[in-house]
Amino acid sequence: MPVPTNVMASSEYVDAMSDLILNSRLPVGLVAIGLQSIPEYSMSSTYKDGLLRMRRLGALLHFLNFSGSVEQLQWVEEMQMDGVHIDMTQLRNEMLPFDALSQIRRPAYSSTQIYASNIALVKDIENAAEWQIDYCYGGLMMPPLSRHQTLQINDSRIAKAIFSLHPHQHPNQNGDK
C-alpha cells in the first residue's frame, strides 16, 4: 500500500490506519506499507514515530522508488526496511549506483529484500539474477489480461463454481453464510 510522506507524519492518519489494520483481522505481516520518499528534516521525527507504530502492528515497511542515494541507504538501515524497490530502467541506464545494491547485501541490511520493478526485457531477468535481486515484477513477468481473456475466465466452469451465488449451508469461521 503506497503511502505519501505527509500521511506517515500525521498522527491522525496513523491512528486511522492503525484502526483499519487492527479491525481488518489480517495476519501479521500481510500489510506492507510502501514509502514513496524520505521526509523533509522538519517532519522526520513524527515520520519515524508513525513508521514505528506501523511496525509494532506488524506492517512491513518497503521503500519504493529507491535510487541508491546515501540518505536513502541511511533510512533503509535506520528503519530496518523489509524491502526496497528499484526500477530496472535505472539499472539499464546505469542511473542507480551498483554499490548501492552491494551495500544492501551487507549484514547491516540482512533482512532487507530487493524488488525489481518494470521488468520489460529478457535481459532484465538475466541482470536481476546476476545482481542477486530477490523478487521481480513487471510486464514481462505477468502481462496484463485482455478483455477477451477476462471474459473467458468469467465464462469458465471453474469460475462459475467458485463465484456461485448459492449460500453455504454451514457458516464459515467468521460466522458468515
Results as ranks from 00 to 15, higher is better:
2 P>Q: 11
2 P>T: 09
8 M>R: 00
9 A>N: 10
10 S>F: 10
11 S>D: 10
12 E>T: 09
13 Y>D: 13
15 D>G: 07
16 A>Y: 08
16 A>S: 12
18 S>G: 09
20 L>V: 07
23 N>I: 02
23 N>S: 11
26 L>K: 07
27 P>A: 09
27 P>F: 02
30 L>W: 15
30 L>T: 13
31 V>G: 00
31 V>R: 01
31 V>T: 07
36 Q>L: 15
38 I>R: 07
40 E>A: 14
42 S>K: 11
44 S>Y: 13
46 T>M: 13
48 K>A: 07
49 D>S: 14
51 L>C: 10
53 R>W: 03
53 R>K: 15
56 R>I: 03
56 R>M: 05
56 R>N: 06
61 L>D: 00
62 H>D: 01
63 F>R: 02
63 F>A: 00
69 S>D: 08
69 S>P: 01
70 V>C: 08
71 E>T: 09
73 L>S: 03
74 Q>R: 11
74 Q>V: 10
76 V>L: 12
76 V>R: 01
78 E>L: 08
79 M>I: 05
81 M>S: 04
82 D>N: 13
85 H>F: 12
86 I>Y: 04
87 D>N: 13
90 Q>L: 14
93 N>I: 01
100 A>D: 05
107 P>L: 04
108 A>H: 07
113 Q>Y: 05
114 I>F: 01
114 I>K: 00
115 Y>P: 00
116 A>P: 00
116 A>W: 02
117 S>C: 01
120 A>D: 12
121 L>E: 06
121 L>A: 02
121 L>I: 04
121 L>S: 02
124 D>C: 14
126 E>G: 14
129 A>I: 11
131 W>A: 06
132 Q>C: 12
135 Y>F: 15
136 C>Y: 04
138 G>D: 09
138 G>M: 10
139 G>Y: 15
140 L>C: 14
143 P>Y: 08
143 P>W: 05
144 P>L: 15
144 P>Q: 15
146 S>T: 15
149 Q>A: 14
152 Q>K: 14
153 I>M: 10
154 N>A: 12
156 S>H: 09
157 R>A: 15
158 I>H: 06
158 I>R: 04
158 I>P: 01
159 A>Q: 05
160 K>S: 11
160 K>P: 03
163 F>N: 14
170 H>A: 12
171 P>D: 05
175 G>N: 08
177 K>Q: 10
